[in-house]
Amino acid sequence: MTKVAKDHNEMSFLDHLEELRWHLIRSTLAIVLIGCVAFVMRGFIFDTIIFGPKNLDFPTYRFFCAVATFFGVDSEFCGDSLPFTIQSRLMAGQFSAHIWTSIWAGVIIGFPYILWELWRFISPGLYEKERKHSRGFILVASLLFFIGVLFGYYVVAPLSINFLGTYQVSKEVTNEIDLASYIGTVRAAVIACGIMFELPIVIYFLTKVGLVTPEILKKYRKIALVIVLILSAIITPPDVTSQIVVAIPVLILYQVSIYISKVVLKKELKKEKEQKNA
């Protein structure tokens, strides 16, 4: 079986570097272009998206308020506003936040294109059959990433902001949150969840190259649980409820990954038998 090469000739190391450079340049240009659009849409990006979880009319807060009301329980999610303000203490603080938020918006929105450029770089080194079986890679990986982003934005970010923004060691201390700190909390929740939701894709490729098997995943399930809880503690406020909310979907993805690993391994064994019998 022959590999699919770009020019049907072997490329030198410098040729590969040159090709990688152009893939990186095109990915960067995509990020910059999307970032420029995000920069112009400042009102929507900041007032609607970034500062959305700061307001108690945010869908997540309304949901928890409705649940608490249904059970007749008082809840802080049913208040008028969160008791903290956002401030910028640096001369270029707001402009810097505007620039970096636009860049990260470019990374998140442009994620499918970045994946596509990455795929264009590595796909010539794959066998034709492997390329065919991995045809839906970009779609599935992008879908998982955006599901993770939405989960981080609508679940992790509001829980973090509500807990940390209302937490007080004493009534003598008022919460005046720095702009960069607030945006960093939202960004960390969104990006971290987006990456964590890529777990099935990672397991798929690790199984393909023989580094992971379903038996290994089952054997180290308890260790994986501990790692998931640690990661949940990092990206969520230090309360058990938030950590469990984040840990549950990741553990579900881990179980899905075990199933994916089984399917991939079964296909690989079947392929080996066919090659031996041929």
Rank of each mutant, 00 (worst) to 15 (best):
K6L: 15
D7M: 01
D15K: 01
L20T: 04
W22G: 02
R26Y: 15
C36Q: 07
V37E: 05
A38K: 03
G43E: 14
F46L: 06
F46Y: 08
G52Y: 09
P59W: 06
R62A: 08
F63N: 07
A66Q: 12
F70M: 12
G72D: 09
S75I: 07
E76N: 09
C78W: 08
S81Q: 14
L82V: 00
P83F: 05
A92M: 10
S96F: 07
G110W: 02
S123Q: 08
E130N: 09
K132C: 00
H133G: 03
I138V: 15
V140R: 10
A141E: 01
F151G: 07
Y154P: 01
P158I: 05
P158E: 04
Y167F: 15
V169Q: 12
K171N: 09
E176T: 14
S181L: 13
R187C: 01
M196D: 08
I201D: 01
K219Q: 13
K222Y: 05
I223R: 03
V226L: 15
I227L: 15
I230N: 08
S232P: 06
S232A: 15
V240W: 11
Q243S: 03
V245R: 05
V245P: 02
Q255M: 12
S257E: 04
K262N: 12
K266E: 15
E268R: 13
E274M: 15
A278F: 06
